[in-house]
């Protein structure tokens, strides 16, 4: 249907994933970290879609749906935790939550 080279398609999730990694590592605000994780999850889902499209099979989209579910669950629990941490530490700085240091 399209004639986009596979290499070009595949480079997009790679870039998005790498950007997500940078976001997780750079940002100290827990909300931004969670957003970056969403970016990475989305990149993984995109990879599934590309693979499914390459073979013309529905499995890729099914897997994307599962990733989507996972992302929804993760975000709801993650945000609840963020609220909790903010309440406890009065900050969203992830570096402040270092009570588990050795």
């Amino acid at each position: 249907m399209t004639t986009i080279p596979l290499d070009h398609v595949l480079i997009l999730p790679v870039l998005l994933f790498a950007l997500g990694v940078i976001g997780v590592l750079v940002r100290r605000n827990l909300v931004f970290i969670l957003m970056s994780i969403e970016i990475m999850l989305n990149a993984a889902g995109l990879m599934f879609i590309i693979a499914g499209a390459r073979w013309g099979q529905p499995d890729g989209q099914v897997m994307f749906l599962l990733v989507l579910t996972l992302a929804a669950a993760e975000v709801s629990v993650g945000l609840a935790l963020i609220i909790r941490i903010r309440h406890r530490l009065t900050t969203l700085d992830s570096d402040a939550a270092d009570l588990l240091q050795g």
Binding site: V24, L25, I33, S94, A97, D98, Q101, G102
Partner: peptide
């Protein structure tokens, strides 16, 4: 030495993971 890696900061953990 290993204790130094246990900073309690998740960004570092994520960095090591990456």
């Amino acid at each position: 030495l290993l204790k130094l890696t246990q900073t309690g900061r998740i960004r570092w953990y994520a960095g090591w993971l990456a």
